[in-house]
Amino acid sequence: MDTLGCVADAQIDDACLLVAFASMDGDMVDQHFGSAQAFYLYAISSDAANLLASQSFGVEKKDGNEDKLKPKLAWLAGADIVYCGSIGGSATRQLLALGVHPLKVKGGPDVKELIEELQLQLNGDKEAWLEKLLQRKSRASDEDRFAAMDDEGWDG
């Protein structure tokens, strides 16, 4: 497992989603976003899931202090999805502005079960939010590819 400056530093296949889980130990989603002590980052495709990195943060109070969000948001930049036990409106808006889709899950679900549920959707009928995310990711990938061709002087 690597140490990443931020999620965007992860080198992954375009077919993978970068998914972070707010978790104390990496086994279950048991943390509020703003006071999360750690995030575990996976590269998830329709048939594989690989733990890429984890990032620890200090113990934070659930006090509405927005400054504690900054290091978490900075590290999560580049993620596709973040699962958390709960999340406030401001953090939700800031994640969405970064292109990260926050998902609130109740009852401390097991990370492996959430990965399996996501893979089932990737292999079959996708919920609307996931379909939109995949379309956005595909468009961004196409734009990157065309920009690279343009930089190389590709002229068809």
Rank of each mutant, 00 (worst) to 15 (best):
I44T: 03
S46G: 06
S46F: 00
D47W: 04
D47K: 00
D47F: 10
D47E: 08
A48N: 12
A48F: 15
A49T: 06
A49L: 10
A49Y: 09
A49N: 08
N50K: 12
N50Q: 14
N50R: 13
L51E: 12
L51R: 15
L51P: 02
L52G: 04
L52Y: 02
A53H: 09
A53F: 00
A53L: 07
S54N: 14
S54W: 05
S54R: 15
S56G: 13
S56E: 14
F57E: 07
F57G: 03
F57N: 08
F57R: 09
G58V: 03
V59W: 05
E60A: 14
E60R: 14
E60L: 11
E60P: 00
E60I: 10
K61E: 09
K61W: 01
K62Y: 00
D63S: 12
D63G: 13
G64C: 11
N65V: 10
N65D: 14
D67Y: 01
D67H: 06
L69P: 03
K70T: 15
K70W: 00
K70S: 14
P71C: 12
P71H: 07
K72S: 01
L73N: 08
L73P: 02
L73S: 07
L73G: 06
A74W: 02
W75H: 10
W75S: 06
W75N: 04
W75V: 05
W75R: 05
L76Q: 03
L76F: 10
A77I: 00
A77R: 02
G78Q: 08
G78M: 11
A79L: 10
A79M: 10
D80S: 14
D80G: 12
V82K: 01
V82G: 01
V82M: 09
V82R: 01
Y83L: 10
Y83V: 05
Y83G: 02
S86L: 03
S86I: 00
S86D: 12
S86Y: 00
G88F: 09
G88V: 09
G88W: 08
G88L: 06
G88T: 08
G89A: 12
S90I: 15
S90V: 15
A91W: 02
A91R: 01
A91F: 06
A91P: 00
T92I: 04
T92L: 05
R93E: 07
R93F: 07
R93H: 09
Q94Y: 14
Q94N: 09
L95F: 06
L96M: 11
L96N: 06
L96I: 13
L96E: 05
A97V: 09
A97T: 07
L98E: 12
G99I: 14
G99P: 08
G99N: 04
V100G: 02
H101A: 10
H101I: 12
P102L: 06
L103N: 07
K104I: 05
V105I: 10
V105Q: 05
V105K: 01
